[in-house]
Amino acid sequence: MRPLLVHDVRCASGEREEPEALTRTPLLLVHGHPFDRTMWQPQLTRFSADRRVIAPDLRGYGASPVTPGTVPLSRHAQDIGDLLDSLQVDTCVLAGLSMGGQIAMECYARYGDRIRGLVLADTFPAAETPEGRRSRYAMADRLLAEGMRGYADEVLERMVAPYAHPDVKAHVHRMMTATSPQGAAAALRGRAERPDYRALLTAVGVPGLVITGADDTYTPVSDAEVMHAALPDSELHVIEGAAHLPNLERPAEFNRVLGDFLARLDG
């Protein structure tokens, strides 16, 4: 049997009870690269008060097992489907950030009937360009040769804005340096070969929420606008004072927007 992803499942009332909190649609949070499930700490704390919240470490990240070589987005999506099965979760609101957003799109392509709402944060749907493909393979080789610290030092103030709180910067840096180079490299190679999800977005049959940081240089606001225009039923929110990780940089604003979306679905 394949190993399950290491995950954090929270609900204020406990897993064995049947209060109203457990009747709300569960929220599943998919982290980006090269992070882990602690990326979602502000959301786990906020939303577990009234629903089941699930945050896994993706294959190769955090405490989940590492698969060397290449791990495509389809493998991550299958892992998430297997996790939902193991937790006996039939449907969920699926939220993903950056690579996690692309995995969320792959999940919708594979088992969209299990997804009640789709949250795409600081991500983009297009396939990789030839230049981008070469860059991801080169970065995979570099991480295997040098480890994660040099890369983490270089990109920290693009992942979060230079003006981000020092505690947020420290958390993000810790996640990056703790990531397995083998796991990160395998995911980079898989992401380099990802399909184009733009046509998929036009056929999404559930409400969508598109969120991005105003100062994100990895996935600028224009990428969010493209997804918002493609989705048949979506909301777009640009969070000021944030770069690529608005859920950590501006958690109160991010949680307000996500909370309003969840309330709409609950209603």
Rank of each mutant, 00 (worst) to 15 (best):
S86L: 06
L144C: 03
Y111N: 15
V204Y: 07
L245Y: 00
L94C: 01
T129N: 02
G14S: 12
T129F: 02
A242K: 03
Q41R: 02
A109K: 06
H165F: 00
R256V: 11
A199M: 01
V168N: 06
G205K: 05
E253Q: 15
H7W: 11
M175C: 15
H171M: 10
I103T: 12
L29W: 05
P246R: 03
A185I: 06
L84S: 09
D216F: 12
V204T: 07
I80D: 14
E157G: 04
Y61I: 00
I211A: 01
P3H: 09
V226W: 05
Q102H: 07
Y163S: 15
A145K: 08
V119G: 11
M1P: 04
A126P: 00
S222N: 04
I54G: 09
V71E: 03
Q182R: 09
V93H: 01
E106V: 14
E128H: 01
G267S: 12
M99V: 12
D153G: 05
L44W: 10
D266C: 08
G213I: 02
C107G: 05
A127E: 04
A121V: 09
P232G: 09
S222K: 08
L29A: 11
V257I: 12
Y197W: 08
A161V: 15
V119E: 09
A252I: 14
A104M: 06
E240W: 00
D215P: 02
S48F: 14
F254G: 09
A21L: 08
R250M: 15
M99H: 05
V53I: 04
Q182E: 15
G96M: 03
P125K: 02
E193D: 15
D113N: 15
D79Y: 07
G205P: 02
L262C: 11
Y218H: 06
P42E: 13
D167V: 08
K169I: 00
V9F: 06
G183H: 01
A192T: 13
E18L: 15
Y137L: 13
P19Q: 10
K169N: 05
L118I: 08
E128L: 01
D215W: 08
K169P: 04
D36S: 10
P162N: 09
P72F: 04
R59K: 12
M105H: 01
L84W: 07
L118W: 12
L87W: 06
D167M: 13
A192D: 11
I80P: 12
L231F: 12
R264T: 13
T217Y: 01
P162E: 08
R191T: 12
R51M: 03
A12K: 06
A214R: 12
F261G: 04
G147C: 03
G147N: 00
A243T: 11
T179E: 09
Q43T: 12
R142C: 00
A229E: 11
I115S: 13
A126L: 03
T129R: 03
I115R: 08
V53D: 02
H31S: 10
A185G: 08
M175Y: 08
T219H: 15
V257S: 05
S234P: 04
